[in-house]
């Protein structure tokens, strides 16, 4: 018997080492960690720095700047004295990025919005890979009628443009809520966008998993297990699942990025996160009407989305490289 120290490192250890050598991936992880941390700090910022409630209108309010009380809504400079504009970036703690049209602190809303956006995106991606994993593994492993039925359902879902599908589901669920047996989810519950986004991306994730399982189904070790009379459930859990986990892990950040974009789009259309809660999508919608006077209200959450999606895509690439057997083989020899 050889000692354990002399065993070659497992595939996960190899992948982690490869990922640790990838500077782009490390920067991505750092950026994502920073965004999550900043979002988690939202209540602290609102309470101790901004000292405002970012969910309450504050049109008639004031903010202290250099010891002076300044109106949050500022009169426009025009001869007819028409209209008011929210205060712009103060460069200080309170109203760091200015106010939106309801007089709310944009920076505080951006942090709170990040919590919802990131939570929805990651939860939707997780739910999606679980559902897609089940569908892909079952369809790929059992084949035949089961595969035909599941694949056709996936084909039908794939045939509908993803945003059209998401919007259709959202309109129904956001207007009526969701009732499953004795359980009712109200229209403002974050579970609704999570479930919708997870459902619409199942075909996109299930297809590569199914393909991988179909390849594994005919591999020697699976055929050997079958020949030895190992039950299908055991083969699925012990032989198939561990070998598709890499594919699932690679899909996860990419699905999270897609989910984030979809959540933002739905919320921008008022059929995602429901007010008074905020997400980056709802903040962009808030800023739409201020695009001429206070563009930062829309640009700031837009930038946050770009940064997170970019980081997730780079991380996804890094994971793919790290977990790809052929890639690691090339690197290893």
């Amino acid at each position: 018997m050889r000692s354990s120290s002399s065993l070659p490192p497992g595939p996960w250890a190899v992948a982690i080492r490869a990922l640790a050598r990838d500077r782009a991936s490390l920067v991505s992880v750092g950026v994502l960690a920073l965004m999550v941390l900043a979002s988690l700090m939202a209540p602290l910022y609102a309470r101790y720095v901004s000292r405002t409630d970012p969910f309450l209108s504050n049109v008639a309010g004031q903010v202290q700047i250099d010891g002076r009380a300044v109106d949050i809504m500022q009169p426009n400079d025009n001869p007819l004295h028409l209209g008011l504009s929210p205060i712009g970036p103060t460069g200080r703690g309170a109203y760091l990025l200015g106010a939106d049209s309801q007089g709310r602190d944009v920076a505080a809303r951006l942090l709170y919005g990040g919590r919802n956006s990131l939570l929805i995106a990651s939860a939707a991606a997780l739910l999606c890979v679980v559902m897609a994993g089940v569908v892909g593994i079952v369809a790929g492993f059992f084949g035949g009628v089961v595969d035909a039925v599941l694949s056709r359902i996936m084909d039908i879902m794939w045939a509908v443009p993803v945003y059209l599908f998401a919007i259709s589901l959202s309109i129904v669920m956001v207007s009526q809520g969701l009732t499953i047996g004795p359980f009712t989810i109200t229209s403002d519950n974050l579970l609704i966008p999570i479930v919708i986004i997870a459902i619409v991306y199942v075909p996109y994730a299930a297809r590569p998993i199914r393909g991988r399982v179909m390849a594994l189904r005919n591999s020697e070790f699976v055929l050997a297990a079958r020949g030895l009379g190992v039950p299908s459930a055991r083969i699925l859990l012990r032989d198939i699942l561990p070998n598709v986990t890499g594919t699932i892990v690679v899909l996860a950040p990419l699905l999270t990025a897609l989910a984030l974009l979809t959540e933002s789009a739905l919320s921008f259309l008022s059929i995602g996160v429901q007010a008074p809660a905020a997400s980056w999508g709802t903040i962009i919608q808030d800023g739409e009407g201020l695009i001429y006077t206070r563009p930062l209200v829309a640009v700031a959450p837009g930038l946050a989305i770009v940064i997170v999606v970019l980081a997730l895509n780079v991380l996804g690439d890094g994971l793919r490289d790290a977990l790809d057997v052929r890639e690691t083989s090339r690197r290893g020899h």
Partner: peptide, 19 residues
């Protein structure tokens, strides 16, 4: 008239506005 356009209207189109 949309609230966010009032500043622009008052500054650039005052002669076309009637209160």
């Amino acid at each position: 008239k949309p609230q966010d356009r009032l500043g622009e209207l008052g500054a650039r189109y005052a002669s076309q506005l009637h209160i």
